[in-house]
């Protein structure tokens, strides 16, 4: 019952977003500001996550690959593909849901409980569009770049870790990483990333927008934003994988 209520209201919220901007130049300015808030400011944590993720995948793959019929360089193939198809788009989106989602929900939630949203409405501004569209476009545009950076760093992390720990030589890893590359995997990853970016921004904004009460509720909204966007990322990861790869 409750879920249907939220689903219905979320759908309505999305429809509210589709509206002609009051003033395009202002939306554009906000868009550039959000590119920084939503995207570039997350590069640090994305870099760290990606490098360590790549390192762990390489070492674990070597550890699990005990079959003498499979050559060691296959580790490079497995590392590359799992990073491109799954780890970079999904895991980085989960990290971004935590970082970007919570900040969007608390920003919009605070604006709600301090009547800043009412102040926008009273001036005749479509508040949901004004608050969400710049963030949405920024995320959908920037997330793919972040994920591509993550892919490079992840693979580089695997390569360095394999070499440093001595489990796979640099030459063998590179041989594998270049073997039978499927460009469509990157396209698939981008489709996932854009979908996840959309989910993170809209779900978090929705949670913030319908906050009632005070500071305590703003905190709860931001927690819910992270929980629900993470769950929906995993659900859509499954759906998209089933639809596109199966």
């Amino acid at each position: 019952m409750n879920y249907f209520f939220h689903l219905g209201r979320y759908w309505q919220f999305l429809r509210l977003l589709i509206n002609k901007p009051e003033k395009f130049s202002i939306y554009l300015k906000l868009f550039f500001r959000e590119m920084d808030a939503v995207g570039f400011s997350s590069l640090g944590i994305v870099a760290i996550t990606s490098i360590f993720m790549g390192a762990v995948i390489t070492i674990q793959t070597v550890y699990n690959l005990v079959n003498p019929l499979v050559p060691l360089w296959a580790v490079g193939v497995v590392t590359r593909d799992s990073i491109i198809i799954e780890f970079s788009p999904t895991m980085i989106s989960l990290v971004l849901a935590g970082k970007v989602g919570s900040s969007i929900a608390s920003e919009i939630g605070t604006m709600r409980v301090t009547e800043q949203i009412d102040a926008l409405e009273i001036m005749g501004i479509n508040s949901s569009g004004y608050l969400v569209l710049p963030k949405l476009f920024a995320a959908v545009l920037i997330f793919p770049f972040i994920v591509i950076i993550s892919m490079f760093l992840g693979i580089a992390g695997g390569w360095v870790a394999g070499d440093l720990s001595g489990v796979i030589s640099s030459a063998e890893f590179i041989r594998g990483a270049q073997d039978s590359f499927v460009p469509f995997n990157v396209t698939f990853a981008m489709i996932k990333t854009v979908t996840f970016g959309f989910l993170i921004v809209t779900i978090s904004a929705y949670q913030g927008f319908y906050t009632t009460g005070g500071a305590l509720e703003v905190g709860q909204s931001s927690t819910k934003a992270v929980v629900f966007s993470s769950i929906m990322i995993l659900v859509f990861d499954y759906i998209l994988t089933q639809l596109i790869l199966a």
Binding site: E22, I26, M111, Q116, A119, I122, M123
Partner: peptide, 26 residues
């Protein structure tokens, strides 16, 4: 024009920008 109980100023804008806001928009 409406003045809300807590002021409802936009946190991300300075005083001048807050007052200019409705003008910039419309």
């Amino acid at each position: 024009g409406m003045v809300f109980q807590g002021g409802a100023l936009f946190d991300s804008l300075n005083v001048e920008r807050n007052v200019m806001f409705p003008l910039s928009m419309f």
